[in-house]
Design a protein around this nucleic acid. Structure first.
Ligand SMILES: [Mn+2]
Ligand SMILES: [Mn+2]
Ligand SMILES: [Mn+2]
Ligand SMILES: [Mn+2]
Lengths: 219, 219
DNA sequence: AAAAATTTTTAGACAAGGCTAAATTAATCA
DNA sequence: TGATTAATTTAGCCTTGTCTAAAAATTTTT
């Protein structure tokens, strides 16, 4: 039985290994976990002793097969609960992440499976992220690309956003952007990577930070 | 923000104050929490410092108004989740208590209220226990009495059972006893307080331990 | 009203998870 | 290549919640 803290570390390591590919450095993980490198070193030793990650001093860490399995189970629970909150309890997609951070740690495989069935075996969560099945498998979805990779005059619809910060959702809400929203790139400015887009009949300038968090399917 | 441990103590103190009336002794609480008296002393000091219970050395403790409010919020969540698990996810009434022990600690008043609405504002949980509303109020239900208080030849239907031990639910299941089951008292034996009853066309002898955990409405 | 038994508290220790400051190793640059 | 900088680990301390053993207070018995 893992503690919540251990589970959160595994989840973070999984997320970092998805983007990057390399072994995950102590500092990187510390930043992701919003904690100190020394604390990470301690935890990483423990997780390594328990066989969930591989770790060598100064070389960073990476998930083992079993560690990855556990990480995917937590992600599965997180995303299923998010679907539940939005579909059944009428939460907005911007409100559910924090609550799912708690619910993802509930220990009951049977609960997870019943929930999945009750929700009709959803394939994606409210932010467009794929939901792993019982065996940790999920479809690699319609290759979505970040908005920042569209060229001028290209058009696409939003099929996902980076899940996490509540501020970011506030921002999206302000401009009425959600799954399915159409976005057209009007101009790109290379000096700061900002992009001028047309959304809902309004022109908006997105910083590169924003355009990298909105995922698009080309039209 | 209370820790899970603090919440569990408040819940236990509430439960003990419902049966008994007196201030709750350290040993009694230790037994209820399945922990050592010295640990209870520590926690009880902390809860007292925080204003959730009144406590004087050697005199036991009792909930303050605010402490009782919190205890009722946790009980409210526990029972709402139990209803959810049985009504929506098709769990058996004997399986839900352990899972609700975890879910009761999820922090989100909005979640609790949405869940309650989604469930149609249920008044009782799957074991016949009343569900406090947003303000901590609940109906004192159709005065149920323990089976042990029925006299010979009297008859009643099960409207509640003591929630908790999974073993006890196993036992009830074995004899096909659930909410609504009719029970007739055939004979009572004063030497050991056991009672011979007729249930589902079968005669069964219940120990006093059992007959005190089954709650009945007379017919 | 003592003595004995029981209950409760205190003292000291431990594991988990975190932090700061110092030491060490690795990486970069002159 | 050596010196400097950056990354990482170690050492030592803190808090929470638990435990055991010992001390103190209260209750019960004689
Ligand atoms: Mn999320
Ligand atoms: Mn989490
Ligand atoms: Mn219960
Ligand atoms: Mn609990």
């Amino acid at each position: 039985m893992l503690t919540q803290s251990e589970e959160n570390y595994l989840k973070a390591i999984y997320a970092l290994s998805e983007t990057g590919g390399e072994a995950i450095s102590t500092n990187l993980l510390a930043e992701k976990m919003a904690t100190k490198p020394s604390s990470v070193t301690d935890m990483v030793k423990k997780l390594s002793d328990k066989g969930f990650i591989s770790y060598q001093k100064y070389q960073g860490c990476d998930l083992t097969v079993i560690g990855k399995k556990i990480a995917l189970e937590i992600i599965r629970k997180h995303r299923l609960w998010e679907v539940f909150l939005v579909e059944k309890l009428n939460f907005g997609w911007e409100e559910v992440h924090e609550i799912a951070e708690q619910l993802e740690h509930i220990q009951s495989p049977k609960l997870t499976d019943h929930l999945e069935e009750y929700l009709g075996f959803p394939k994606v969560d409210p932010h467009g992220d794929p939901i792993p099945d019982k065996n940790g498998l999920f479809e690699v979805l319609n290759k979505s690309i970040p908005l920042s990779e569209l060229n001028v005059a290209e058009k696409g619809i939003v099929i996902g956003v980076e899940d996490g910060s509540s501020d970011f959702f506030q921002f999206l809400k302000r401009y009425n952007i959600g799954l399915g929203t159409e976005i057209i790139v009007a101009e790109k400015f290379s000096f700061d990577q900002s992009v001028l887009v047309k959304v809902n009949h309004t022109e908006i300038s997105f910083s590169s930070l924003v355009s990298n968090k909105i995922f698009i399917q080309k039209r």
